[in-house]
C-alpha cells in the first residue's frame, strides 16, 4: 500500500480493542467527544447464516477494489457459548475472490454481543477509520436480530435474502423490511430467486417510508452476475445520504448505540465479577434492584405519597 498502512501495528491494536473491558475502552478513548463525524463510508452486510454473505463480500470487494478503493472489513463469527472460543472462517470465502493488498480483513468473535456484532465494534471501526481506508464494511453473524444492531452502526445496510426463503411474511416477521437500504436476493441461478425478489420488491413498494426507496437486486456471486449493479446501488445510496444530510441524521443513533452497549456490558461485568461463588451477592443485588424499582414505580403511580405538596394529579 502506497501511503503505508502499518498492518502489524493495526493488527495488534485491533486485537487489543477486541478484548478490551469497558474500563479499558474508556481509557483508550481518552477525553475526546463521544461522536465524531466519520471519514469514509460504512457499509453493513447482514442476512441469515448460509445466505452467502462472505462470498458476496468477496465478489463485491473485488469489484470495488478495481476502482482503486481501500477497504477494511470486520467479519463477525459466533463465539461458542460453551468454551468462549470461536472458529473464524469468513475470510476463506472473502479472500478466495479478493486477495488484495488494498483489502484488510479482520475476523472477530461475537463474544457476549447478542445482536450479531461484537463487543467493541465501535472501537474496532474507529481504529480502522484512523487508517487510510475509503470504506469500512461490517459483516454480521447473521442470526437473531442481527439486522437491528448493524443498522445502528453503518451508513448503508445491505440485507441478503435467500431465494425461496418462504413468503414475505417471514421477512416481515424478521423485521428485515424495516432496516435495509439495499436488498439482495442471492443465488439468482436457483429456482424461486426471481419470485422472491419480485415479492420483496412489491412489499417494499407499499411499506418503504422516507425518501429512499430500497432497490431489490439479484446476484450470483460465482458468476459475478448482479455485482456491478449492487456496487452502483451502493454508490446511489451514498449519494443520497450526501445530498439529504443522511450521515448527520445517522450520527446520533450511532453514538446512542455505542453508549447503550457500553452500559449493558458494564452491567454484565459487574454481575460476572460480583462473587465467584455468586448466590449471596447476586441475591442481594437482585433484591436491591427490585426494591429500588418498586419504590420508583410507586412514586410514579402515586406522586403525592412522595411529595405531599405536589398538587398535580397523575395523568
Amino acid at each position: 500500500m502506497t501511503d503505508a498502512l502499518d498492518r502489524h501495528g493495526l493488527g495488534r491494536r485491533l486485537s487489543a480493542a477486541t478484548d478490551a473491558s469497558v474500563a479499558e475502552v474508556l481509557e483508550a478513548r481518552g477525553s475526546g467527544p463521544l461522536h465524531r463525524p466519520h471519514r469514509g463510508h460504512r457499509l453493513g452486510i447482514t442476512g441469515p447464516p448460509g445466505v452467502g454473505k462472505s462470498t458476496l463480500i468477496g465478489a463485491l470487494a473485488n469489484e470495488r477494489l478495481a476502482d482503486g478503493r481501500r477497504i477494511g472489513i470486520v467479519a463477525v463469527d459466533p463465539t461458542s457459548p460453551r468454551s468462549g472460543g470461536s472458529i473464524l472462517g469468513d475470510r476463506i470465502r472473502i479472500d478466495a475472490a479478493a486477495d488484495h493488498e488494498r483489502l484488510y480483513v479482520r475476523s472477530v468473535p461475537s463474544r457476549l454481543a447478542g445482536d450479531g456484532l461484537t463487543d467493541n465494534l465501535p472501537d474496532l471501526v474507529a481504529a480502522l477509520e484512523r487508517e487510510p481506508f475509503d470504506e469500512i464494511w461490517v459483516e454480521t453473524v447473521g442470526v437473531g436480530q442481527a439486522a437491528y444492531g448493524v443498522r445502528r452502526c453503518v451508513d448503508t445496510l445491505i440485507v441478503l435474502v435467500q431465494p425461496g426463503s418462504g413468503d414475505t411474511v417471514q421477512a416481515m416477521k424478521a423485521g428485515i423490511l424495516e432496516v435495509g437500504d439495499v436488498y439482495v436476493v442471492t443465488r439468482a441461478d436457483r429456482p424461486g430467486a426471481e419470485q422472491t425478489a419480485a415479492e420483496l420488491d412489491a412489499t417494499l413498494a407499499l411499506t418503504a417510508t422516507g425518501d429512499w426507496r430500497p432497490p431489490v437486486l439479484l446476484t450470483a456471486a460465482p458468476t459475478g452476475a448482479g455485482i456491478a449493479e449492487l456496487s452502483t446501488a451502493i454508490e446511489a445510496h451514498r449519494h443520497h445520504l450526501d445530498e439529504s444530510g443522511g450521515i448527520e441524521r445517522l450520527g446520533p443513533d450511532q453514538a446512542r448505540y455505542d453508549v447503550e452497549r457500553l452500559l449493558q456490558r458494564r452491567v454484565r461485568e459487574l454481575i460476572a465479577h460480583s462473587d465467584p461463588t455468586g448466590v449471596q451477592t447476586l441475591d442481594s443485588m437482585y433484591r436491591g434492584v427490585v426494591e429500588r424499582l418498586s419504590a420508583e414505580l410507586s412514586a410514579t403511580q402515586n406522586p403525592t405519597n412522595q411529595n405531599p405538596d405536589d398538587k398535580e394529579s397523575p395523568s
Binding site: S80, G85, S86, I87, L88, G89
Partner: peptide, 8 residues
Amino acid sequence: RDAGADVI
C-alpha cells in the same frame, strides 16, 4: 476453540 481460543 474448545480450549477458549479464537481460531482463524
